[in-house]
Design a protein around this nucleic acid. Structure first.
Length: 307
DNA sequence: TACCAGGTAAAAA
DNA sequence: TTTTTACATGGT
């Protein structure tokens, strides 16, 4: 079904350390609902140029990924693939830490090669985090789909997430019409204006140390501590950051590392994850995915189910 | 029908 | 300063 040109013009994507793309896609879709695709499809803007990429895994060990793109293999296209896949992240040091632990060890053995995939831009990550505040990720996904179809345009028929320039002029009512609360609509408009005007420089943010980036982010209206840490760990590769207020993390951390029940006090989350520094956020992600792997077909093929 | 889902800012106490 | 409340909507 794919255009022939898409499969003809491709390039290999180098990855450091273990990588299971299929597992990573299944894990991601478990949170947002829907059926996991067998390939990663990236539709993004690189500068002003829109690109489409389809990434598939040709070999597990050592991992070999192949990206097919009608746009060819320009430097920008390669870099967007590397960014979304976080190819520079080598899971090996994390696994070394995790395997020493009797609770996390079995989890990483079952989820070997799982890596968090991130949206194609930090702006999309930020807006995604806003939409995911409080409500289920499935609902948030529906909202973003509406945002995309209303404000995002398309590349060769493929929908692209809107950029800050497109969202800054969206009316309050049109955003509410996408299912956002009035509050969230204000946040989205505000953030889009800040990014668009340069008041919030997301590229500069990427270069800041964790604590400073956290401070900048939480200074933005609509970005509280949960959102800031969520963006840091999922969008910026700061794998030691943990959104400790997170309901799902509280539940997963409590189940595997605590008394079995959800950790009610956010202050107790980091101490429980301490053995996995500097990968506490990544450890939390593995626990989250493992807890829900019952709905991730094929994820639990090695090892036994936890009681 | 009612309640929950990977929170936040603003109002009220 | 700390606690409470409104908010959106799809799934169960």
């Amino acid at each position: 079904m794919r255009p022939r040109s898409a499969s003809e013009r491709g390039f290999a994507v180098g990855v450091s350390g273990p990588f299971d793309l299929s597992l990573s896609l299944r894990a991601a879709s478990r949170f947002t609902g829907g059926v996991a695709p067998d390939k990663l499809r990236i539709v993004a803007r690189v500068g002003v140029r829109p690109v489409i990429l389809e990434v598939s895994q040709k070999r597990k060990d050592p991992p070999l990924l192949w990206a097919a793109s009608p746009s060819g293999a320009g430097r920008e296209v390669r870099s967007i693939a590397a960014y979304v896949l976080q190819t520079d992240l080598d899971l090996s040091p994390f696994y070394e830490v995790a395997l020493r632990d009797r609770r996390l060890g079995p989890v990483v053995r079952e989820l070997w090669g799982l890596r968090p995939l991130r949206p194609a831009s930090l702006f999309e990550m930020l807006i995604t985090a806003i939409t995911e505040q409080q409500i289920s990720m499935r609902v948030a996904e529906v909202m973003r789909h509406r945002l995309t179809s209303r404000f995002g345009g398309a590349v060769d028929g493929a929908p692209v997430f809107p950029d800050a320039g497109s969202l800054k002029d969206a009316t309050q009512d049109s955003l509410v019409g996408c299912g956002l609360s009035r509050r969230k609509a204000e946040y989205v408009r505000g953030i889009s204006k800040m990014v668009s005007s340069g008041e919030l420089d997301l590229e500069a943010l990427k270069r800041l140390p964790d604590d400073e980036a956290f401070r900048v982010l939480t200074g933005v209206r609509g970005v509280g501590p949960w959102t800031a840490d969520y963006v840091l760990v999922r969008g910026m590769g700061r794998l030691d950051r943990v959104p400790v207020e997170d309901l799902g993390i509280g539940r997963a951390v409590g189940k595997y590392l605590g008394e079995g029940l959800r950790v009610e006090d956010p202050g107790e989350v980091l101490p429980l994850l301490r053995p996995f520094a500097p990968y506490r956020g990544l450890a939390a992600y593995y626990l989250l995915v493992h807890e829900r792997r019952g709905a991730v077909p094929g994820a639990a093929t090695r090892g036994r189910r936890q009681p």
